[in-house]
């Protein structure tokens, strides 16, 4: 995936500012198929939440408020992936109501853990869980928001980093480009001074090909990165996979490592397909 914060033609900051006289800019938060964790990242800013509510009109945020204002909204955050015909239609409506739309989290940007269905026979999965799968109306694949509508920015992570989320919200409202980290977890890990798990051979690690943003949390607890922020920009996934294979990581382990929280992200999906089928 390309750098989500690269300038794009539609990156016109004036467009996201409220028209003169309309008061505070409006914020809306919507949820598709997901766990709620990424929108919780906003509520987890305990110190900033009430201040944010002073400068922003929280117009639609079902988890937080019973108040509901119709669009258009200056900034819309969308959590979750599209997995049903109803949500495919809904996300189109959300786009229409959004001056700027930011997809937040692994589900919204890559299809999330539920994109494991993309590699399997979806009706068979439904039969395994439901006594009456005929009641379900679902799509065969779990897809990111960008597969359906134009997305102005994406924030990666399962879950997103709360600081990055607030930065994107604040930058949008201030009319400037957000300061975010486009590089790989590997660089954050070096900055944090952690011993390299691949060099020491302590664990398989996706840090070299995974999008930064977490602060190299897993290597910090002596655990290999499992790629929950999805592929970094131009990742050399094949090279890493070959290196891991040389370290006696089995094909099955490699495939599982790549097929977890951002399994359907193209760089991970393509490489995982080279290591057998589930």
């Amino acid at each position: 995936m390309s750098d989500p914060f690269a300038p794009a033609p539609e990156w016109e900051w004036e467009r996201v500012r409220p028209p003169t006289g309309r008061g505070r800019p409006t914020l809306a938060v919507f949820k598709l198929a997901s766990c709620d964790g990424c929108q919780l990242s906003l509520l987890d800013h305990e110190d900033a939440l009430l201040r944010l509510a002073d400068v922003v009109q929280i117009a639609e945020f079902a988890e937080l408020s019973s108040a509901s204002m119709p669009g258009p909204y200056d900034l819309v955050l969308v959590e979750g992936s599209v997995t049903t015909p109803a949500d495919a239609a809904r996300v189109a409506g959300i786009r229409d109501a959004a001056r700027r739309l930011v997809a937040i989290g692994a589900c919204a940007t890559a299809g999330g853990i539920q994109s494991l269905r993309n590699f399997a026979d979806e009706p068979a999965l439904a039969r395994r869980v439901y006594a009456h799968p005929e009641y379900l109306a679902t799509l065969a694949d779990s897809t990111p928001v960008s597969a359906h509508v134009r997305v102005d920015a994406e924030i990666h992570g399962c879950p997103v980093d709360g600081g990055e989320l607030l930065e994107v919200v604040a930058a949008t409202l201030a009319g400037r480009r957000p300061i975010t980290r486009p590089h790989a977890v590997c660089e954050e890990c070096k900055q944090a001074g952690h011993a390299c798990l691949l060099v020491t051979g302590r664990a398989a690690c996706l840090g070299p090909v995974t999008h930064a943003g977490c602060g190299a949390l897993c290597p910090g607890v002596d655990r290999g990165c499992f790629g929950c922020f999805g592929p970094s920009e131009s990742p050399n996934t094949s090279s890493l996979a070959a290196g891991l294979a040389r370290r006696n990581i089995s094909e099955k382990s490699l495939r599982r490592l790549l097929r977890t929280f951002t399994a359907a992200a193209p760089a991970f999906a393509t490489e995982s397909a080279r290591h057998g089928d589930v």
């Binding site: 997901s34 709620d36 919780l40 539920q114 269905r117 395994r128 379900l136 679902t138 399962c158 977890t260």
Partner: peptide, 30 residues
């Protein structure tokens, strides 16, 4: 809420992967 099939796609995964995968059911009580 759309179904997400956790019980189905856990099958065939390594057991030690289960705590992290299962946690993704809920961001409030992982």
């Amino acid at each position: 809420e759309p179904p997400r099939y956790f019980e189905a796609f856990l099958v065939g995964r390594g057991a030690l992967e289960a705590p992290d995968i299962t946690a993704r059911i809920c961001g409030i009580c992982p």
